[in-house]
Each structure stands twice: as C-alpha cells, then as structure tokens.
Design a protein around this nucleic acid. Structure first.
Length: 109
DNA sequence: CTGTTGACTGTCG
DNA sequence: GCGACAGCCAACA
C-alpha cells in the first residue's frame, strides 16, 4: 500500500473509511492499529475534524456506547444512521456489539 | 514554550 | 462491578 508516514488523522480517516456498512469499529481498535491503544483520544480528536468522507457514526467506544453522538448535529442522527444499517441501538448503546464489531486488522469482511 | 482539553482505554484499589 | 488515576498524541490559547 502507498500508505506511508501520513498524518495521524489521515490514518484514522483511512481506517474509518474501510469500515463496511452494517459494521462498527472502536476507538481502541483504531488507536491500536495506529500503534497504541491509548491513542484512542487522538482518534476522537481526529474524528472531531471528521470530513464528510468519514462515517464517524460507525465509530464507538469499547462499550459500544455512542459517545460521539454528542458531536453530531442531531442527537438521534448517529443512532438513526446505525439503525438504518441494520444495527440495533438501545439507550445510545449498540446491541450485540460483538456481532457487528469490525476491527481494522480484520479485512475478512 | 507551557498548560489545558479532547468523540478513550487500561490498570489499580 | 465501579471509581479514580495515568497514559497516549495533537491542536489551541
């Protein structure tokens, strides 16, 4: 891959873009892929500048909680988008997270 | 340059 | 299982 020492954000964007529909990823998984699971904060920061090309609504915390929804214009938007992809959200939390969880290292799709 | 903040996670008690 | 602290890196004041 032509992926090289790109900016931290670029890596996050690249990974999030690879998230297939109906699947979700976690900050820890992405951060770990970047080199450190503790860099999950940077993932959130990067997504704070999330371009329209990045489905940030597919990125949730380890608990499957839609912590990022607060940054969305619509509080229900993130949940609505996930539900639209076949996911089940309840109380701002993803049901059967393991079932829909997708890891950057798992390109098996 | 220094300090604070941020869509988090892991470890310790 | 839950609360508190530490670690991680980058941007902003």
């Amino acid at each position: 891959m032509t992926i090289q020492k790109e900016n931290f954000f670029h890596k996050v964007y690249a990974i999030v873009r690879q998230i297939p529909e109906g699947r979700v990823s976690t900050y820890g998984a992405i951060g770990k892929n970047l080199g450190s699971a503790k860099s999950a904060r940077m993932v959130g920061w990067a997504l704070n500048n999330c371009p329209s090309d990045v489905p940030a609504h597919r990125v949730v915390n380890q608990k499957g909680l839609l912590t990022g929804k607060i940054h969305f214009e619509g509080i229900n938007l993130m949940q609505q988008l996930l539900e639209n992809e076949g996911l089940v959200i309840e109380n701002n939390q993803i049901i059967d997270l393991e079932k829909y969880l997708w890891e950057p290292s798992c390109f098996t799709q």
